Amino acid sequence: MGGTRIWPQSGRRPVTAGNPMITGIPGRTGEQMFKITIRTRWLLVPLAALGLAACGQAVSGSPAPNPEAARQAADRTLDQGVAAMGKYVQTSANFRGTVFRYATIDDKGSGSEVEVSRMGQPAAVMTKIHSTSHSGFDYDVFHPAGSALDYVRLGPGYAKLAPTKWVSMAAFSASDFSCAMPGLQTLCKLTDTIDATRKAAPPGLSTETRRLDDGGTDIETSITLKAFLDATVIPIPADITTRIDPDMTGKLIPVRLTLNSDGTFRRIEVNGAVLGKAGKVQLQVGYETKGPSASDDYPPVPQPAEVTALPDKAAVDDFWARLGQIRG
């Protein structure tokens, strides 16, 4: 059973699915102990090479590898990586980043990329949701700094939802709760998956670290499919999750967490597949920092004639429900 494959324009390997919705916004549906292996070459120097054997002097080779010390060192590096993610979420007042979300469950798959920018205090927030599997099914969510409103710009695929290009509603994206923000929410949920997997300590879990040419660090570990599903990193409809065999949920999916040379967070990516008796789950989900935001990330505030105002929560809930139904 083959799922639809998607080649994102960013050049990532083709992995399909995602959810078009920004999650964590009310009324909007779908956005330490473990075995560690560090491979090190150890060299025992022959005595003859040192010219000491004939003298009868005892010469010791290099000390034997200490697996426990290696495990602890890698464990500390992973701790530092998770802490760097948390610091990015809590302290980033001016940033730009990209969330990518692709998944296939059996033959059902889609994908999306989300560009998010935040700048200033009070903050202006711009989120652009691009479907990579349904052309034209894009929309933006814009919160002007200090505004009581959020504005949603509808792409061609959603044009029938309103008679105007923009829809307005009571602001939520101005919340000070960082993990509720689009993009940052994905980081929070991926942190949860790492923590849950480390606590569960499933067989085969390991971590490796690698120094990059630019001085950065790659940390390679894994999460369980169960941790990914429990954290709703990608909200998946119940009729789709029922296709996932229970024996699949304990299996591991590779994760790569990258830090800059100064220890700050750069990127995280979950990328791999889980095979079951009757199907397959394939995921590529992550977040990549894109530096500071700039003023041209934000459009002018729409004029009243360009906007359809949603008067209350019921209207907002109905709007997001209809948007989700159009995508299916």
Rank of each mutant, 00 (worst) to 15 (best):
T4C: 05
R5T: 15
R5A: 14
I6D: 00
W7L: 09
W7F: 11
P8K: 10
S10P: 08
R13I: 04
R13M: 06
G18Y: 01
P20G: 08
M21D: 14
M21L: 15
I22N: 12
G24K: 09
G24P: 09
G24Y: 08
E31H: 08
Q32I: 14
K35P: 01
I36S: 07
T40A: 06
V45Q: 03
A48Q: 01
G56Y: 06
S60K: 12
S62H: 07
P63N: 10
N66D: 15
P67N: 03
R71L: 03
Q72P: 06
L78P: 06
A83L: 15
A84L: 09
M85V: 14
Y88C: 08
F95Y: 15
G97D: 09
T98K: 13
V99Q: 14
A103L: 15
G109R: 06
E113R: 15
E113M: 12
E115S: 09
M119L: 14
M119K: 15
M119Q: 15
Q121M: 11
A124E: 15
A124Y: 08
V125A: 01
M126N: 09
I129S: 10
H130V: 05
S133G: 07
H134G: 00
S135H: 12
D138F: 00
D138Q: 03
H143F: 01
P144F: 07
L149F: 11
R153Y: 06
G157F: 09
L161G: 01
W166S: 04
A171R: 10
A171S: 12
S175K: 13
F177L: 12
M181A: 04
G183D: 03
L184I: 07
Q185P: 03
I194P: 03
T197M: 07
R198S: 02
A200M: 03
P202H: 05
T207F: 04
I219T: 02
E220F: 09
S222M: 04
S222C: 01
I223M: 04
L225R: 03
A227G: 00
L229I: 04
T232A: 08
P235E: 06
P237H: 01
T241I: 10
D247S: 13
L252S: 03
V255I: 11
V255N: 07
R256A: 04
T258A: 03
T258V: 09
L259P: 10
N260C: 08
E269H: 13
N271L: 04
V281G: 01
V285P: 00
E288L: 14
Y298L: 08
P299W: 13
P300L: 13
P302Y: 06
Q303T: 11
E306K: 11
E306R: 08
T308S: 06
T308C: 01
P311R: 13
D312M: 11
A314S: 13
A314Y: 05
D317I: 05
W320G: 10
W320C: 04
A321M: 12
L323F: 05
R327G: 11
